[in-house]
């Protein structure tokens, strides 16, 4: 029966008009994203200003060498581990906040909470770096000057003690992003048919059970899609978080250095365009391979939720 409908339906759905609707977006993406992609071949060139982009000499994979040195491995590990932590913990926290927010029901309180949680997202990393410094700085920081004095204990030279930094960075990440990403989940929860909850209530389901058996499963498509997108960017890192927040402190590099900051530090003096392009290509290709694989897996399990 269903098949018959969809066959009939396919007859009604013509591609032309739909493509026309999508046209402005397609044109924009071609111009903004696809045309500049010819720039990737800079990764294989020894750039010279006189010769220009097209005239510069090819130099094979020379520009990539610095990314595959022994010391670069640690950095790849950091990047991946941080991203995994951000994906998993970030998602859990965002969903939690979204669910609680939707349970409040009362608009005024939602408004207050939501505005406040979103506020950190409006700050630039430079400013967040300053805020972190206001708390952590060893000589005038709030933690050393006030909290530690109140509760006793030794002052900590935060910017030279690597141990707590994975937690600090995770905390700062959550602080900045949870409010923002919970909005997406709130919108998804709002989209759930209220009658399902009503029916569950009549059947005597408790709140916790409703969340467990209705809300969370209904959020699955959103979670899948956001995770897939995050996986594609697993080799990238938020430069500001890893550069501004630890104040670029050398003593912390073992735990704060990611691919983006490594590339930045390495190239600050040389400013080699080819090497920068090589790093970007490397990140994209790895992300691409990972996401295509992940998407294939999702498609196998649940066709509807795959990205493409």
């Amino acid at each position: 029966m269903k098949k018959v409908v969809s066959k009939k339906n396919r007859g009604l759905t013509k591609s032309g008009p739909l493509l026309l609707i999508a046209l402005p977006g397609i044109v924009y993406l071609i111009i903004n994203n696809y045309i500049p992609m010819f720039g990737v071949f800079l990764a294989f060139k020894d750039y010279s200003y006189v010769k220009g982009i097209f005239g510069s000499d090819w130099n094979g994979f020379d520009n990539f060498k610095y990314l595959f040195r022994q010391d670069a491995l640690l950095i790849v590990r950091n990047t991946i581990l941080y991203n995994l932590a951000f994906i998993v913990i970030g998602t859990v926290c965002a969903i939690l906040v979204a669910i609680l927010m939707c349970e409040l029901g009362e608009r005024f309180r939602v408004k207050i909470f939501q505005s406040s949680l979103l506020l950190p997202n409006l700050l630039s990393w430079v400013v967040i770096g300053f805020i972190g410094y206001a708390f952590l700085n060893a000589d005038t920081g709030f933690i050393n000057k006030t909290i530690i004095r109140l509760f006793g204990g030794n002052e900590v030279a935060w910017y030279t003690t690597p141990k707590p930094w994975p937690f600090i960075l995770l905390l700062v990440y959550l602080w900045k992003n949870v409010g923002y990403s919970s909005i997406i989940y709130m919108a998804s929860i709002a989209g759930i048919d209220k009658s399902i909850f009503e029916a569950a209530k009549i059947d005597g389901a408790k709140k916790i059970e409703q969340i467990r058996y209705i809300t969370i499963p209904m959020l699955k498509p959103t979670v899948v899609i956001l995770t897939l997108m995050a996986v594609g960017r697993i080799f990238y890192s938020d430069f500001g978080l890893f550069y501004q927040v630890p104040m670029n402190s050398g003593a912390l590099y073992d735990v704060t250095q990611t691919i983006d900051t490594y590339v930045y530090h390495g190239l600050m003096e040389l400013k080699d365009i080819g090497m920068a392009a090589a790093a970007a290509l490397y990140q994209s290709v790895v992300g691409f391979v990972l996401v295509v694989t992940a998407n294939a897996v999702v498609r196998k399990i649940d066709r509807e939720n795959a990205l493409f």
Binding site: R69, A157, T160, G250, A251, Y253, D272, M275
Partner: peptide, 28 residues
Amino acid sequence: DSSEVKTEYTAVSNVIQQYLPGLLCGSV
């Protein structure tokens, strides 16, 4: 002219930034 040792240059710059400030400020 650093062009023949570009790869080493980037790696060395990274190591220096990791250690030098701490040494010059006495924190290590």
